[in-house]
Design a protein around this nucleic acid. Sequence first.
RNA 1: GGUCUGGUAGCUCAGCUGGAUAGAGCAACGCCCUUCUAAGGCGUGGGUCAAGAGUUCGAAUCUCUUCCGGAUCACCA
Length: 597
Amino acid sequence: MNLETKLETLVAKAVESLYGLKIVPNQIQLQKTKREFEGDLTVVIFPFVKAARKSPEQTGQEIGAYLQENNPLVSSFNVIKGFLNLSIRQNYWLETLNEIHENNEFGKTVVTDDAKLMMIEYSSPNTNKPLHLGHIRNNLLGHSIAEIQKANGWKVVKTNIVNDRGIHICKSMLAWKLFGNGETPESTGLKGDHLVGKYYVVFDKAYKAEIATLMEKGITEEDAKKTAPLILEAQKMLLAWENNDADVRHLWETMNGWVYAGFDKTYKQLGVSFDKIYYESETYLEGKEKVEKGLASGAFYHREDGSVWANLTGDGLDEKLLLRADGTSVYMTQDIGTAKLRYDDYPINKMVYVVGNEQNYHFQVLAILLDKLDFEWGKDLVHFSYGMVELPEGKMKSREGTVVDADDLMDEMIQIARETSKELGKLNNCTPVEIETIVRMVGLGSLKYYILKVDPRKSMTFNPKESIDFNGNTGPFIQYTHARIKSVLRKANEQGIVFKHLDNKQIAITKKECYLIQLLSEFPSVVKLAGEEFSPALIANYIYELVKEFNQFYHDFTILKEENPHLKQFRLVLSESTASVIKTGMGLLGIDVPERM
RNA sequence: GGUCUGGUAGCUCAGCUGGAUAGAGCAACGCCCUUCUAAGGCGUGGGUCAAGAGUUCGAAUCUCUUCCGGAUCACCA
């Protein structure tokens, strides 16, 4: 039983024995004492004053006295207004620090053989354009959530569904065929995904031009969009693809191959990976089959033109298309098939989709459709719906070229890190390889932290004109603190100082040091909450607070020059534990921390 | 229009399962390296928590109304 639970239980007992008020221990409001007051933990007294029929101050005094008498860990207390501030015995904190220091897996729950399995889908790119900043947020969130859930004892399977087929893919294929002059990544020196993306934009421009021409002839925009030669040709191509036309398939395989080579580089640079990749081209038939079954069972219905629909009006939603009149499948069809295959492949206990909030409706519908198809897990799927990354002018649009490219952005951040590092000259003793490793860590660290520190559910603004900061609440600031601690620890080792275990617990430590231990001890509950809330931001904000506190300590106290050997040992243990929590916590965000920088 | 979602300092964001005087960073200004890494620390200024009403001992936090954004309601994915 941890300290908080103990105190809550005791407060409940106190209230009952003093005032006859029965209260559930976890309803007691126990919080960290605000900095400006004396104490470590605070009990909010207001809820008891009615039963006590005394002033908040007097009630606080009585409960405080009871706690002090019945729990040896409470060394003293004070009451201010309706707040009972408790000071906890220093011994307790020193003992806690020892436990933290000796626990290599501090903050993490072990994944046992019988642990439940969570499948996390993220990334899920289309193979018609390169990844951009929006995908970066998705990938970082997916990867971090996976790490966080592992740390909470889940078995995790990271999966990626590649949208490698469909009308949008045909668009870039068609444009390349018509206007590409046989260009390849080799002939152009372009990364494969960028080359294909280029033709997606080419298609869009040519298509828009056709629409404009048709409209000049007096055709309505709506009709022009449907009858432009290019879109008809793309639709023909999609049909040919579904009919296994050899030429179309060959072109498709070639161009997708280019894209995958490009994606692999981007994923590697970003530091994300997958345990199992699904391709829409391999799951959409399964989806079609399930839709046919649903048709047979009466869950879905045909329209006159032959298209297949689900009627969701009974669920307060609209009607949803599942198969086009020409028999080709849509996004939803494929998602049904993918879901089915996944549950065949793995004993999934929880399925999580990391997909932007623009698709909230899609997932609401998907859950209902799976339910209608009698999959008992349909309604249990979790759509981890995150907010969009916006530019100051608004949404990014690939077709209009207003996207922040993922590869460019990563390169830019690494370059800034390289320049900064050079200016500061701290890596002058390192080899070029070491420098590159560190500079990459820092550049990517700044980008990743920048993205992950904000609440994933909220949309965020990125201004390309202001480069991401390296000072303040940033990744490099945290990495720097880690490097600094490591430097001190190296020196301690060189001096032969032993700080494995705190032997002497009679030393007098300061409030700042005490508070640092308290912060460290909160790490496991932060990890737990981050898992429940699916929020890497909670980890990021926690680490920042820890690091800020540590830097003040580092500034105000000496470690290696402390004359009292017990105190010196204590500070080394405190520093090492802090470095360890920083490293673990940043690891949960997918951010590496350097030994020096 | 229906549904969902957001509005906190000049900017980017915390705080939101109700608790003490609403916090950080950036930007601005000032101070601190003969001392374990100054990518650091300290300080100053900066707020009608969109507006109004309600619930409560107590509201940025919960409820309602209004205003202003965003997403979605596709034979796109």
